[in-house]
Design a protein around this nucleic acid. Structure first.
Ligand SMILES: [Mn+2]
Ligand SMILES: [Mn+2]
Ligand SMILES: [Zn+2]
Ligand SMILES: [Zn+2]
Lengths: 156, 156
DNA sequence: CATACCTTGACAATCACTTTTATTTCAAAA
DNA sequence: TTTTGAAATAAAAGTGATTGTCAAGGTATG
């Protein structure tokens, strides 16, 4: 109820029309803050409230919401585009930790990249506006499990 | 002629068979070091030397070469998987700078992330093994062009 | 309300990639 | 060498996500 009236406003500003479908799609993504829903999952969720909506509408709406800055597309290389809420205040995309074992995804809100981005500007003259960062490895739980399993010192 | 005999060796070690198709695919990626070829582009290049090869073979071979550590898959969100040579000595994936204006892709060989990865291990207990990092912005040339175009101080 | 233009739903089409099937090749054993 | 069975291949059909088409319906103004 805080970002909702901005949708109408922003749609209008960009010359888009205000429709129930567009609101419904945003509602779903907002209701699932913290998750990374696929287009199909969003479609299924929208249909619960709005059974007659078409898939194409979902696929057309998501890029519009992204353009307006309400959502971000994310890619976890699982064969489909996923979306997450762009939380107000977030200036850059947050990073993701992907556990190779249990597939859990953890969000890292700290940006941590300013220094690197300065170095890159110095070395390449490339002016960075945003980034996509994924870290692959083992989450705390999976790492602990590993260490318990082979706690003999074979490290060669 | 330096990594080529390793292919046979590694294929054997992993229980894969040594085939002309697999060699031909690696040859193509090696011959295009510095580029980011799509599966289809690789297919077309392999066919020049090996006209009877099938697409499916290309799609099956690329993940095998990736598993063996010869190539990396990269994703520039243009609807297809691209591959690049895994240069010997490279321990982590290098980063890419993507210019939003001219679409040029620049490689950053410096890792620069050790410090951040330590912080993440401290804060989340997540043990990082590798990463995918893309920076979006303006390359030096496009940035210079921009600054020349509007060199009046409108910054509000 | 009327007009002009957007947006939508249904569904066909596309696109990258995978699976299937019949056939060939590899390499270990005879 | 020749045999032989598993593994790999080419070609074609299939898959699943996403996009294009188009007639019908909705939205914003006057
Ligand atoms: Mn996230
Ligand atoms: Mn590269
Ligand atoms: Zn885990
Ligand atoms: Zn540029």
């Amino acid at each position: 109820m805080k970002q909702k009236k901005d949708l109408s406003q922003l749609l209008r500003e960009k010359g888009y029309k205000i429709t129930a479908q567009r609101k419904a799609v945003l509602d779903v993504v907002e209701a699932h803050d913290g998750e990374h829903l696929s287009s199909q999952e969003i479609y299924d969720l929208v249909r619960k409230k709005f059974p007659e909506v078409g898939v194409a509408t979902i696929y057309r709406t998501l890029p519009v919401l992204e353009e307006l800055g309400f959502i971000y597309a994310v890619d976890f290389e699982d064969g489909c585009t996923r979306y997450e809420l762009h939380r107000t205040g977030q200036t850059h995309r947050h990073h993701h930790l992907l556990c190779e074992r249990c597939k859990k995804i953890t969000e890292v809100e700290d940006d941590l990249l300013e220094e690197i981005e300065d170095k890159i500007y110095g070395n390449y003259g490339f002016k960075i506006k945003d980034h996509r960062v994924k870290f692959y490895g083992l989450c705390k739980e999976c790492d602990n499990k590993d260490n318990k399993d082979n706690n003999d010192g074979f490290d060669t």
